[in-house]
Amino acid sequence: MPIEIPKEKWTGKVRVVTLGATAAEGGTRTRVVTVGGQACMPFLHFEHPTPHPPVLAIEIKSRPPTDWSPILMETWGEAIRNPATWAAAAEAAGAEMFVLWLTLEDTPEEATQAVRAVLGASGLPLAVFGPGQAEKDNELLVAVAEAAKGERLLLGICEDKNYRTIVATALANGHLVSARSPMDVNLAKQLNILITDMGLPADRIIMDPTTGALGYGIEYGYSVMERLRLSALQGDSMTQFPMLVTVGFEAWKTKEAKVGEGVPASWGDWQQRAIDWEIGTAMTLIEAGADILVLRHPESVKRVKAAITELMTA
């Protein structure tokens, strides 16, 4: 007798969220990105088709990074001197969108200038993240949001300390927010409630549950994401958002990625190890439900993209 394959009967579904707006929608993007829509755990096509595969973003900075691994600096070369050239290089490397990460040194004018430069250099959708200090984030992101009105930018980092300002400016200027909470199902949910309570439509929210790199707490991020996704499928409306993870940021700050000398021989080839570290982190989180992965190295983008294509076919 043939064995019956057990299928989960979920009642909930992840919301579909679109980033970027074309001219017809009031923006200037030539392409948009759509994520979400899953009605089962990742890539279980026998249960439910996966309407939108995970999307790969490449992280670029408003000014040349000072603490990046030499491997990354060498790979991007001169491109890092200018967000516009960097964006063009990232697009050529296979980015489906960009995350422009601003720094503490940026003034609001410089930040908007960088955003304009990137928008001008490529038609891909854009996320703009502040340096991660609530007040500075507010100052920079409000300026950026106003300058890029109607583009459906993804604004981050929107967390419990500053969500009011970020959400208000997203509301006023037609953008989305990336809601970040520190690796906790209830905190993520609570932040989403606060944001929707302010009137931001739920299809303009992405959640960033925070993650750790391989070897540096990935297991916490992994399980929180699995739990958030399960809760979404079980019908909890306030967890039914696509998830973004800053894989490159986490993986490339590890010693494994940053340091080539004076490390154990058993760590293997530095270049290969550093890239493997980013890919290993990314692939593991994709299995847990990541929808947008922010990466740093072109080789990771290439390989993770190929892996996603394979995951999308059954």
Binding site: E219, S266, W267, G268, D269, Q272, R273, D276, G280
Partner: peptide, 20 residues
């Protein structure tokens, strides 16, 4: 046998199999 690949996989295995 490729050390950098093994290192990443051995660490991942420890992480996933840690008691939460």
């Amino acid at each position: 046998f490729r050390p950098e690949l093994l290192y990443a996989l051995l660490v991942l295995r420890e992480n996933i199999y840690t008691d939460p």
